[in-house]
Design a protein around this nucleic acid. Structure first.
Lengths: 173, 173
DNA sequence: ATGGGCATGTAAATCGTTACATGATTCT
DNA sequence: AGAATCATGTAACGATTTACATGCCCAT
């Protein structure tokens, strides 16, 4: 039940709506999880039941009310306790790598397409991280910057590796 | 249903038992998935039903029979078709990074422990990859080597990043 | 003798995605 | 005019883990 702590952690920064949590999870924490609304909203409801968060409804006309969630004392405590435990191992599911692993069943052209598309999306991700970084105010906690740096370095390493591969298969043709 | 293709792909190398598939998935393909027996065995049964694999039982005394699975023509075809499709995005769940992101709620000592333990397990993983690499026979397909190189470079990048962080928080004390 | 590796599997519970439903506002 | 963003949520389905069940063989 790790999304519980994702949500709790984001709310410990500042009160937010479900929608905002999703956005933030999808930018700064993209390498941590890919949670969808179908996970996030029920998690929020559960947290509310358990008294780990509190909710304030801001009614607007003709639109769904913004439900702003804030962490409670109980929630803070639960979060801190969870933080003490050693983290579980990373879980991954990488179809791209799996396909590469089986590339021997692939035409050279399809392989090249696979690699080029990966490079494209990695580049895009790197750009968005760069934007995130320059946007970050001076008040951004250093530990959050560390995570962004981690992501950027990983992607840069991947890009170099991709470029080498692409050059390699190009030469072999 | 991506484990279907993981299994199919491994069986396209050579016939194997469920147990062997698990081992191989846990070494060469650790960065692709962390499938457990509870996923792998039912996947194998399903594949058999669908005629994508065939099974041969090798009875031994006093032990469960080894069930050796091999890919069929149908399976080959299905695998190739899947390979043509563009891969889904990577899915990740990284508690370690999430905890780091929230490290402001953590005592300096706990933070240091978190980082040191991560370094330890990353080192172990790097060692096992190095062993995998030196063990790899000359007949190992190049694309499989690429995946191992990918993993190694990622982990090396992570280790450098970890060392920097650890030095940084050490200095701050 | 103790632990690790070999070797199979199932059932319950949880977890998560996808697709759907709804609709105003603001930017291009 | 059309696309994107804001904003909530549910239901059905599918995927996965965890825990359980069983037991021999081999090396230290």
């Amino acid at each position: 039940m790790s999304h519980r702590y994702l949500v709790l952690g984001l709310l410990s920064e500042k009160p937010m709506t479900g929608y905002e949590i999703k956005k933030r999870a999808g930018s700064a924490l993209k390498s941590v999880t890919n949670a969808s609304y179908g996970t996030l909203y029920p998690t929020l409801h559960r947290l509310l039941e358990d008294g780990a968060v509190r909710m304030e409804e801001h009614i607007q006309n003709q639109r769904p009310a913004r439900k702003v969630y804030a962490i409670t004392e109980r929630g803070q405590q639960e979060l801190k306790q969870w933080l003490q435990q050693p983290p579980n191992d990373d879980q991954v599911r990488r179809e791209f790598l799996l396909k590469l692993f089986m590339a021997r069943h692939l035409e050279p052209d399809s392989l090249k397409t696979l690699l080029l598309q990966r490079r494209e999306s990695s580049r895009a991700r790197l750009d968005s991280l760069e934007r995130l970084r320059t946007t970050a105010s001076a008040s951004t906690p250093p530990n959050q910057v560390w995570v962004t740096e981690y992501d950027m370095e990983m992607i840069q390493t991947e890009l170099k590796w991709l470029d080498r591969l692409i050059a390699g298969i190009g030469a072999a043709t």
